[in-house]
């Protein structure tokens, strides 16, 4: 399955949910937010939200800015 995450394409196997995706890519889970195909997915739903081929996902955190 190909997904597009933060503007990059990734080939993933055995990843069915957003939570599993974060684990597979070793991404942080605290104080981050996820958008799946332009819809924010609330944290309690990460375990049950399925990812599909060609999904566009954004995972964001906070950085310094003005």
């Amino acid at each position: 399955m190909t997904i597009f995450i933060n503007g990059e394409s990734r080939e993933l196997k055995d990843v069915s949910t957003l939570a599993a995706l974060l684990d597979a890519l070793d991404l942080p889970k605290q104080r981050v937010a996820i958008e799946l195909n332009k819809q924010v997915i609330r944290k309690p739903d990460w375990e049950t939200t399925e990812v599909s081929n060609n999904d566009k996902i954004e995972v964001v955190h906070f950085v310094g800015g003005g």
Binding site: G7, L25, L27, V59, H61, F62, V63, G64, G65
Partner: peptide, 8 residues
């Protein structure tokens, strides 16, 4: 603070 993509 700014919102930014998490580096992969």
């Amino acid at each position: 603070v700014a919102v930014n993509r998490v580096p992969l």
